[in-house]
Design a protein around this nucleic acid. Structure first.
Lengths: 187, 187
DNA sequence: TAGCACATGTAACTCGTTACATGATTTG
DNA sequence: CAAATCATGTAACGAGTTACATGTGCTA
């Protein structure tokens, strides 16, 4: 039973073969919205998956002192991934540093407290813009085809859009509440 | 500079003095909604905070083979907490195992996929009910008093309510989309 | 020619979980 | 009398981050 990262890599390889470097990049950009890993985790994990027979690789020529390996998922890997995907994940305990700060914000300087929430708002606003751009670009595929990955890409994107909108609304509410009490921020 | 857990403990102690055990409990029930830790983390962290002069303790008598210590925050601890609270947290990379599973759900059995999302929906439905109960109980305090903790308790609760409602709506949408394609689930 | 993207690995360290350990008091 | 709750600690392990390490090819 490999780690969650192993299944993240399998999920990417089930769509197309990639090198370790390409997997690392994918763990920043499309997958990074819900799972991340650094390259120092990726290479050992690929070796473990290969030892288990869930991925295989061919050596292609590339730059640098080492071999460049292009990995692909095997039939056994695909079966393992499909089985893992429907096992309910254990309820994960949330870790939200911002909420922890809000919990102690009554001790803080009111102007600085307002600035904290405003900054957070901007982060989520930027993230929402990125998701909206992705949504505009995405070809959704045939929505009738549940065996094609596009619909599930779209489902994860919808979750991101919804999440950012909800956080944004909460930030707006909180900033307004803080301003109502202490007067609007100085210019 | 202590860990985030240190500030979580300070945040609790700024409200009232507690024993390590009481802090551990608080890290499950009220704080657990946005930060968790097990008791094996709490005791060493309390020792570190004490060494730094941010908390102090008095020994009270209790059961068991060891001393029972009741910890309280010091003036220095309170200053450190107030300063930390307004420093913007580094944007945290999300880790959402369910979304990772959704990303590979096109490979899975459609009925099992539907069951996965339905189960997730029930989890969030139960969590929403807990939050709504808490909201009904909560005395919000004088909303004009930004130096009192009650308003900020309420703010974190609002975030929980909003979060669960958004996830619930997404689950409902996804289940409906999956059913529309494969026909309603067998009874 | 300096920096970046490509490309792959190892090592040290931190944070968090699980398991090990002990023992009193209360409740079913 | 068994189990849960109160109460506090240490140790082993696993997952993840940061830093170390090497080297090519392209572009500003």
């Amino acid at each position: 039973m490999p780690s969650t990262l192993g299944y993240a890599l399998l999920g990417l390889l089930a769509r197309k073969p990639r090198t370790g470097y390409e997997l690392t990049r994918a763990l920043r950009e499309p997958i990074g919205y819900f799972w991340t890993a650094s390259h120092s985790q990726v290479y050992p994990e690929l070796a473990r998956l290969e030892a288990r027979g869930w991925v295989c690789y061919e050596i292609i020529d590339g730059p640098g002192p080492r071999d460049t390996k292009r990995y692909a998922i095997t039939a056994a890997g695909r079966r393992a991934l499909a089985a893992w995907a429907v096992v309910p994940p254990r309820p994960e305990r949330s870790r939200n540093e911002l909420l922890l700060k809000v919990y102690s914000l009554w001790l803080a300087d009111p102007a600085a407290a307002r600035a904290l929430i405003t900054a957070e708002r901007e982060q989520h606003s930027a993230m929402l813009a990125r998701y909206e751009k992705l949504a505009a670009q995405s070809e959704r595929g045939d929505p009738a085809d549940l065996a094609a990955p596009q619909f599930f890409d779209y489902a994860t994107l919808c979750r991101g859009l919804s999440f950012e909108r909800h956080v944004l609304a909460w930030c707006d509410w909180l900033v307004a509440a803080l301003e109502r009490r202490t007067g609007p921020a100085a210019p």
